[in-house]
Design a protein around this nucleic acid. Structure first.
Lengths: 127, 127
DNA sequence: CGGAATCCCGTCAGATACTG
DNA sequence: CAGTATCTGACGGGATTCCG
């Protein structure tokens, strides 16, 4: 059994920045959040199809940790066949804005690096 | 030799958010950035003393990757004994704001979780 | 003083198989 | 359909040693 991301912290005097980054850490949590951000409510297998290459274990584990941390809501319908819908909580939606500002920074920074190499920056041709 | 964080990406169509998170990923980069954020310019050994528990390898490797990615500036003075000063670049300083908004989110979110348990939320006494 | 080279281990994440 | 259990490999990060 894997430990939840948060259980690794020994004391509760955690840097809030590290705390936030841990919530969305790991290979799949950001992709999951991105899908849920634009789809309102998604079934397990639908998520799995969109996340190309993910295994059942990584998907269910990531969703579980996101749920434990209040980012994702899990709604189970006792039907046959079983149906489970995942969605972002209000808390989960509120992290989108800080993440987008980081993404904006990344976009700008990537462009600035590209003007240094391998392009000459004047004519956009490769040096 | 360790690969730089960025070399792991196979294609250059990288999500700018992942890109930004990779720049500050790893165990020590955020602490380094935090120190440089409030100190303007810091010597290698001064950094090492503040980062309790870091090894020379992790410090020099982290600084090197931060420098390669344009976050940190390295100024070497050819004196005896040798002296090297590290500081945040302008680009490096510009990432502080997105990080702080994430940190703000983390602070609020941590508090909300705390009102759920182990405190009752009404009187702030332990259940 | 400011690193680099080498070795080593714990943890994360993937593969595979099985279940209510 | 929506997961869980177990095994395994790869990689990030630490300890130690050495260098200009």
């Amino acid at each position: 059994m894997y430990a939840s991301s948060m259980e690794k912290e020994e004391n509760n005097t955690v840097c809030p920045l590290k705390y936030a980054l841990n919530l969305v850490g790991g290979k799949w949590k950001l992709p999951i959040i991105c899908i849920l951000a634009r789809e309102e409510s998604v079934r397990y297998n639908s998520l799995k199809r969109k996340l190309v290459g993910i295994t059942n274990m990584m998907l269910s584990q990531s969703l579980k940790e996101l749920e434990e941390n209040g980012i994702v809501h899990r709604e189970q319908y006792n039907e046959i066949p079983p149906r489970v819908e995942y969605s972002l909580t209000k808390e989960g939606r509120s992290i989108l804005e800080p993440l987008e500002s980081l993404s904006e920074w990344g976009k700008i920074h990537m462009d600035k690096l590209r003007t240094q190499s391998p392009y000459c920056g004047e004519c956009r041709e490769v040096k």
